[in-house]
């Protein structure tokens, strides 16, 4: 990691760690879904930004993680959050093995449609198999212990804005570091190569399908861990988590932050959660405004919020160049 980026990352983590007393309880609880979505979007962007594969069914892995949390805490009565995270990653991988083996054969719209289809299949499974999944009513996710500590003296709000907040921040920071290493590794290079020119990448010895498949597995595991982190504050795993509109929301967040930048998904998660909170408090027509924001981003700033400074710099430079250029002499 370059010195500047490392410093910026450390400063962001330090600021977030120190934030709860300054933000107050409610705004601190708002950051919890940012950590969960941030982790899930880092995984999604491994496929989208680095692999060139847009998944419209990624919410199935978020849901798999949430249901894993429900099974571990509610059915098996294992309260350890570390066990929940491991089980979520395992559930995500188990689901991604068959799905990824099929989807990794395709790219572009075919990949998108296949992931959408598998996502809806998983949603139907969650919705219909009442005996296993609770159907539309979902499964309860009980409050876990953190590093073996129960925090019994804290009510749920105090638990969430205290120990759970810092725990999730640490998990998100560690997984972001892990993802940074992955995208900077030879594997990450191979993934980008197959995105830019798959045939040439194959000539150079990249096993394109296997690379996509491994990226799919890593992406699914991140999605499921993010789902487990999201499920604890809600206290419920429900089938809507796997619905296609939730997959669309994940893609929206990634676009909002900027899929071409490593930190784009993290910024996208933060911006989306804050924007939605603000708009929902402002007007019942918040969905309309969110749609308008998405349209604005695609039209005016396709690189997302992370690309905004570069876009503004380029526009300013272009304006300066135009101003400095000698005016053409009027035609005689």
């Amino acid at each position: 990691m370059r010195g500047g980026a490392l410093l910026a990352a450390l400063a962001a983590v330090a600021a977030l760690a120190a934030a709860p007393p300054l933000l107050g309880e409610y705004r601190t609880t708002l950051l919890l879904p940012v950590f969960g979505y941030g982790v899930a979007l880092l995984g999604l962007n491994l496929l989208f930004g680095y692999g060139g594969l847009v998944s419209f069914g990624h919410a199935m892995f978020v849901a798999a993680g949430a249901y894993a949390a429900a099974v571990v805490t509610g059915v098996w009565r294992i309260e350890s959050f570390e066990a929940v995270l491991l089980a979520a990653a395992a559930a995500g991988l188990a689901l991604a093995l068959p799905v990824g083996a099929l989807c990794a054969r395709y790219t572009k719209i075919f990949f998108g449609m296949l992931t959408l289809a598998f996502g809806m299949l998983f949603h139907s499974f969650l919705f219909k198999f009442y005996g296993l999944t609770g159907g539309d009513q979902g499964m309860r996710v009980r409050r876990p212990t953190l590093l073996g500590l129960e925090f019994e003296e804290l009510d749920k709000t105090a638990f969430l804005v205290g120990p759970y907040y810092w725990y999730c921040l640490a998990v998100a920071a560690l997984l972001a570091l892990l993802m940074w290493r992955i995208v900077r590794s030879p594997f990450g290079l191979a993934l980008r190569a197959q995105r830019d020119n798959p045939r040439k990448a194959e000539y150079l010895g990249v096993e394109v399908r296997r690379t996509r498949f491994v990226a799919f597995l890593v992406s699914a595991a991140f999605g499921a861990v993010g789902g487990a982190m999201l499920a604890v504050p809600t206290g419920l795993a429900d089938p809507e988590l796997a619905y296609w509109t939730h997959s669309g929301t994940l893609v929206f967040m990634t676009l909002l932050g900027g899929f071409a930048h490593f930190a784009g998904p993290l910024l996208g998660a933060l911006a989306y959660v804050l924007l939605q909170d603000w708009l929902m408090s402002l007007t019942p027509y918040w969905r309309l405004l969110l749609g308008a924001v998405l349209a604005l981003i695609v039209l005016a700033c396709p690189q997302g919020l992370m690309g905004l400074p570069a876009l503004l710099r380029a526009r300013l430079a272009a304006r300066r160049r135009r101003a400095a250029a000698p005016h053409p002499a009027p035609a005689e």
Binding site: G24, E25, Y26, R27, T29, L30, P33, G138, T157, L230, P233, T234, G235, L236, D238, E240, L241, Q276, D277, M280, S281, P284, W286
Partner: peptide
């Protein structure tokens, strides 16, 4: 607004805490 479970829990926390 009541929407899905996750968002509605957040809105309830907003009502109580904010």
């Amino acid at each position: 607004e009541e929407t899905n479970p996750r968002e509605t829990v957040e809105r309830a926390r907003r009502l109580a805490l904010q």
